[in-house]
Structures are given as structure tokens and as C-alpha cells.
């Protein structure tokens, strides 16, 4: 369930290139290309495209400032914003016609391996930045009689994050596939329109929860 399909290319027997990896590589190429082009044409008086992107960055900045406070939001924006952009693009890639049905492309977040990978990154990000923000406070947080529960809590947080993202996107893709088999043209559109909303909300929820988990440690 939710496992990668038969790998398309095998390198050295370990590094399998599956449909998710191809989609992610295409996605990263698109983001990198847009960033490079926009950086090359950066102007004091922004054009239409630059304006849209600036508004997006400002929105993210305000969004995280509400949770973490202005100073900390700026400090950790590099990770949180890239997480948001990655998850948003990954979720939306499932809506491109043909992705998920065509053999070479599949929404990356509809596979458990990808979301668990993301959550492992999130786990280490939260713990390391909490430790660096104040090691005394971090250690004091764990010096209570209920240490086992706290440790369990820290491990359950990323697990629930990854399962939530995976379950939502996987369920949505499954519904889309079933509707496609029912009536190839027309039926999936209803679900796709809803997905436009849900994909953005899932990306938002993931980063929002990450930010508030981080906030538990560093606020003072």
C-alpha cells in the first residue's frame, strides 16, 4: 500500500529511480529554473511575475511570524518555507492530467517513503534548532519524572505528521483513479476542484504544525 511501484531504473541495486523520484526531479528543476530566471531579472521596480513571487514570500513570512514571532520566523524561514514550497508543489503535481495514471509520473507525497523522509528531516530540524536556541532550556525540558512520555511524544509527532500527509494525498489519488476508471472524461474534475483546496491546506497544516512544535521549545 502506497509503496513505490516497480522501480523504473536500478542503479547499483540500491538506488532505485521510481516514478516519484522522476516527478520530484522534474519539480526541483522547475523551481530551480524559475528561481534562476527571476534572480537574473531582479529589478528594483518589480514586474508582474516578480510581484507575484514577492507577495508569496511576504505571505509566508507573515504566516510564520504569527506562530513564531518576527525574529524567529526570519531565522527559520529557510527550512519552513522550503518545506512549504516542496509539499505544495508535490501535492499539486498529482493534479496534472496523466500524473498517477501514466507510468512515469506519480505525486511524490502519495508514497509513504517520501513523507517519512520529510518527517525525519523535520524531526532533526526541530531537535537541533531547539538545542542550539538554548541548550540549558532544552535539557531542562526533559528533566522531569515523565521523561519517557516526553520522548515518546517527540517520536509520535513526526510519525503523525507523515501519516497525515500521506493518508490525505494517497486517499485523494485513489479516489481520482477510481473516478477515472468510472468515467475518464468529466468525473475526476469534481474531485480535482476539491483537491485544489485540500492540497494547499495539507501543505499549510504540515508547516504550521512544524512551526508550532518548534515554538514549544524556543519560546520564552
Amino acid at each position: 500500500m502506497g509503496e513505490a511501484r516497480e522501480p523504473l531504473v536500478r542503479i547499483f541495486g540500491i538506488l532505485d529511480i521510481s516514478a516519484e523520484v522522476i516527478t520530484m526531479l522534474v519539480m526541483i528543476a522547475v523551481v530551480a529554473a524559475v528561481s534562476l530566471i527571476i534572480r537574473h531579472n531582479l529589478r528594483e521596480r518589480p514586474g508582474k511575475f516578480q510581484n507575484i513571487l514577492e507577495a508569496g514570500v511576504e505571505y509566508l513570512d507573515n504566516f510564520f511570524s504569527d506562530i513564531l514571532g518576527r525574529k524567529n520566523a526570519r531565522k527559520y524561514l529557510f527550512f519552513l518555507a522550503s518545506l512549504f514550497v516542496f509539499i505544495l508543489m508535490a501535492n499539486y503535481s498529482g493534479l496534472i492530467p496523466g500524473v498517477g495514471i501514466f507510468k512515469y509520473f506519480k505525486a511524490p507525497t502519495s508514497s509513504l517513503s517520501v513523507t517519512v523522509g520529510l518527517s525525519i528531516c523535520t524531526f532533526f530540524f526541530i531537535q537541533i534548532s531547539a538545542f542550539r536556541a538554548g541548550s540549558k532550556h532544552y535539557i531542562k525540558h526533559f528533566l522531569t519524572p515523565i521523561v519517557p512520555l516526553l520522548l515518546l511524544d517527540e517520536l509520535i509527532k513526526p510519525a503523525s505528521l507523515s501519516l497525515r500527509l500521506f493518508g490525505n494525498i494517497f486517499g485523494e489519488e485513489t479516489v481520482l483513479e477510481n473516478l477515472y476508471e468510472l468515467l475518464p472524461i468529466g468525473a475526476p474534475i469534481i474531485m480535482m476542484a476539491l483537491s485544489l483546496l485540500f492540497c494547499a491546506i495539507q501543505a499549510m497544516v504540515y508547516t504550521m504544525l512544524t512551526a508550532s512544535y518548534l515554538n514549544e521549545f524556543i519560546e520564552e
Binding site: 493518508g167 486517499g171 504550521m208 504544525l209
Partner: peptide, 23 residues
């Protein structure tokens, strides 16, 4: 924003059920 967060946490329960159902 608080509402969205709490709705997402409740939604997770449904998702766990969905995963078990798929299994």
C-alpha cells in the same frame, strides 16, 4: 488559524481509519 489546526488534528483520525480500510 487555530480552527484549521484543530480541524486538521481531528481529520488525522479519519485518515488513520482510511489507511486501515485500504489495508
Amino acid at each position: 488559524s487555530t480552527l484549521l489546526l484543530s480541524l486538521a488534528l481531528m481529520e488525522a483520525l479519519t485518515i488513520y481509519g482510511l489507511l486501515i480500510a485500504f489495508m
